[in-house]
């Protein structure tokens, strides 16, 4: 498999596979319940019973992180699926058909892009109430205009290519041109945007949870763990730090995966790819 000759891609895949296993197997590998409090043993340092110590309610930090992987992955996958499908359709239609459809769409995208994505998500969560679904919907809607803008730009570069015109000249219809030529050739840059947006979605979920607007405590999310540990950064830095490392690892893994996909999906880059991590 040519994909696995790309070291960055390989590392990304291994890390994400590990995270996926952790998420799926959480009930079995977590040493204890992420919600069980032990008020006699709060803010404990790492020990054999609690490898990463406990938080201010005596909950096992490692177990909370393991369960938190589930929520983070769920957010990443759902946001990516939602914003990709919406954004690609909107961008492709705007770029390929042009005319007033494009002018209206581009205006809307520009207006939405004028808001910082996190602010938009914040406003949407505030309007819908904080829950896992509203975090996903809010972050996905915040990213859709980005995907759509990239998709439209890419489609505009593909539309005038000779192979599109040549196919039109031998009788291919609009839908066939769209799905044979335009969409496959636009995938590499859009996939890169998608993985970056998945990584940013995880950050956004953590950020919203940290601010108390995301998934509500006591649910174990990485953002909640950071928020819980924030007051004890001086005495017990391991609580926030370990959650921060989890977030960083997942974001890096997604970015490596995105870069690897971009390099390997493009047949012209197949031989030159993979040197630089």
């Amino acid at each position: 498999m040519r994909y696995f000759r790309h070291p960055g891609f390989l590392i990304g895949v291994i890390l994400l596979t590990l995270l996926l296993i952790v998420a799926v197997a959480a009930p079995w590998i977590a040493p204890m319940s992420p919600l069980e409090t032990d008020l006699a043993n709060t803010l404990a340092p790492p020990s054999a019973a609690h490898l990463l110590g406990t938080d201010q309610f005596g909950r096992d930090v490692l177990s909370r992180l393991i369960w938190g992987t589930r929520i983070s992955l769920q957010v990443a996958v759902a946001v990516m699926a939602l914003s990709l499908s919406l954004g690609m359709v909107i961008g492709a239609v705007a770029g390929f058909f042009g005319g007033w459809v494009e002018r209206v769409t581009v205006s809307i995208i520009d207006i939405l892009l004028a808001f910082p994505g996190f602010l938009l998500a914040l406003a949407l969560v505030a309007a819908r109430g904080s829950s896992l679904e509203s975090v996903i919907i809010a972050v996905a809607l915040a990213f859709t205009p980005r995907v759509a803008a990239v998709m439209r730009a890419v489609v505009l570069t593909i539309k005038p290519r000779t192979y599109v015109e040549a196919s039109r000249a031998i009788g291919m219809g609009t839908m066939r041109l769209l799905f044979l030529h335009v969409v496959p050739n636009s995938l590499p840059p859009v996939i890169v945007v998608a993985t970056v947006s998945a990584a940013t979605a995880i950050l956004a979920e953590a950020g919203l949870s940290f601010l108390g607007l995301g998934v509500q405590p006591p649910a174990p999310t990485w953002g909640n763990v950071i928020a819980d540990g924030q007051s004890f950064l001086a005495s017990n830095p391991l609580i926030s730090l370990s959650a921060g490392i989890c977030i960083a690892v997942m974001v890096v893994a997604l970015n490596l995966l995105g870069d690897g996909l971009r390099d390997t999906l493009d047949p012209q880059m197949r031989r030159s790819s993979g040197r630089v991590l």
């Binding site: 000779t162 196919s167 000249a169 031998i170 009788g171 291919m172 044979l180 493009d266």
Partner: peptide
């Protein structure tokens, strides 16, 4: 009618094929 009755080939064969599909797949699509 295009392709079936009247067909056309272009000047630059280097860019007139879609780089992401095999030539067989592209003929099949026609």
């Amino acid at each position: 009618l295009r392709g079936a009755v009247i067909s056309m080939i272009f000047q630059d064969p280097l860019t007139a094929l879609n780089p992401v599909f095999t030539i067989g797949e592209q003929i099949v699509e026609v």
